[in-house]
Write a protein that binds this DNA or RNA. Structure first.
Lengths: 241, 241
DNA sequence: CAATCTCATTGACATAAATCAATGACTGAC
DNA sequence: GTCAGTCATTGATTTATGTCAATGAGATTG
């Protein structure tokens, strides 16, 4: 077995392909996409996948683990842009400038598929399904970012954290993982930074939600005990009824 | 002259084509795009271009005027998502769901180019430049939304409004309009809603900026007197030095 | 030209969340 | 095993911004 084979899982075999780039492609088309995907050594916790300002050549799909996207401002302050879970794509924000506009760091050991952009551009002219999928993917990210904007601009700390937990829960469920019991891959600081809250506030809301029986938190382990209550807190419709 | 001719300005003639879809296309390609663009009667102030939940068939480019994108939540509260100026594209957030996920309303008399999505999809498989441009356009919107997220999550009222004014200034300049003297097409309420601030706060910050000699406001007319000061307030680099 | 609205501004007061500070629980290095 | 460092929690205090209330300036309509 070649060294690189250790990390190889073809798109066809990959359990996440329904969430990823190959979605809605035929088997043949999927093989074509599979042919351009590079699968490297997993990233260790704290390793960067890419950093702001570097040349954009590829975007990435997460196979396992978790990634934090962030930026550092003039004052050296970090700003967390988002978190990526298995089956999710990141790096598409760099197409326009051809330079990465954010940095991406592994929150835990993380396996990645690297997808060279120029090849996808070429392939997608040929494979109509792929082009349509790329448009949908980009469009979805815009929509999700707009939803986040509403969260950040107009919601209280409880609403932000309630929504954040429900969103994670939903994403885990889509990945065939438990939607009620999961491990937060990021630190409290990261959550606060992402939601525009002080760490202390995150901590306080967590304890408050726990006291009210909505969740059970122990370090990074979270259990959702009362989804309905959490939805009320979040002032959002039940994501999965 | 046919009735519809009153509104017809081809992409070739349009002064905004450098900012719009035809950007980076050859003359021939531009004519092909031009062929699918529909140019209707201008929208009157208050008229909707589309509303949330309706079927998505086209996206739109603004020729003149200004559009507010917004959503109404369960409680009937409006949430302003953004403002579109001449040369800008809107509606791309609906590709993924095939339904509009926001509503768009004219803030003043507004001329629009309607661009049927399915035709662009088809054309862009054929015209590589167009596909590349669409990817860049979508990618840019993601990046801009992420910048807005940082503004909403981590900045003070003064920073938000400073940044908002500088951003408008820059956009007007790109449109060959004055970057120092312009008219806000939206109400204070809309600005506050968009930035996650109470109207009163918007008003107070405007007066404060005026007292400090940064700007001159009179109703919707704004003059930027001290760009440098505004940049300091906004804690952002000079957009155009 | 009133009369009615909507929109903007300003002041007084309330409050959610930030900041400051202290402590404890883990984690990893040597 | 111990020591330093990071991370999480909790309490006390401050503050930026929201909410409530009043007024005035324009715009729109009959």
């Amino acid at each position: 077995m070649k060294k690189s084979d250790k990390f190889v899982v073809s798109c066809q075999q990959c359990g996440l392909n329904a969430l990823c780039i190959p979605y809605s492609l035929t088997h043949e088309e999927m093989d074509e996409v599979d042919g351009v995907v590079k699968r490297g050594k997993p990233l260790q916790r704290g390793e960067n996948l890419f950093t702001t300002g570097t040349t954009f050549n590829s975007f990435y799909a997460i196979r396992s683990g978790a990634i934090k996207s962030y930026n550092i401002d003039e004052n050296g302050e970090e700003h967390v842009i988002g978190f990526s879970l298995p089956g999710e794509i990141l790096g598409l924000d760099a197409i326009d400038t051809a330079k990465h506009v954010s940095s991406a760091k592994a929150l835990e050991t993380t396996s990645i598929c690297e997808i060279p952009y120029s090849q996808v551009e070429t392939l997608s002219s040929k494979i109509h399904n792929l082009q349509a999928h790329m448009y949908r993917l980009l469009s979805r990210e815009i929509r999700e970012d707009q939803e986040l904007q509403m969260l950040l601009g107009k919601k209280t700390a409880e609403e932000k954290i309630g929504t954040f937990l429900l969103n994670l829960s939903l994403r885990y469920e889509q990945r065939k993982l438990s939607s009620t019991l999961f491990r937060l891959p990021m630190a409290r600081t990261d959550i606060g930074n992402y939601l525009g809250l002080a760490v202390e506030t995150v901590s306080r809301v967590f304890t408050r939600l726990q006291c009210n029986g909505g969740i059970k938190v122990e370090g990074k382990e979270v259990e959702i005990l009362d989804r309905r209550y959490l939805c009320e807190i979040a002032h959002s419709a039940l994501p999965n009824p």
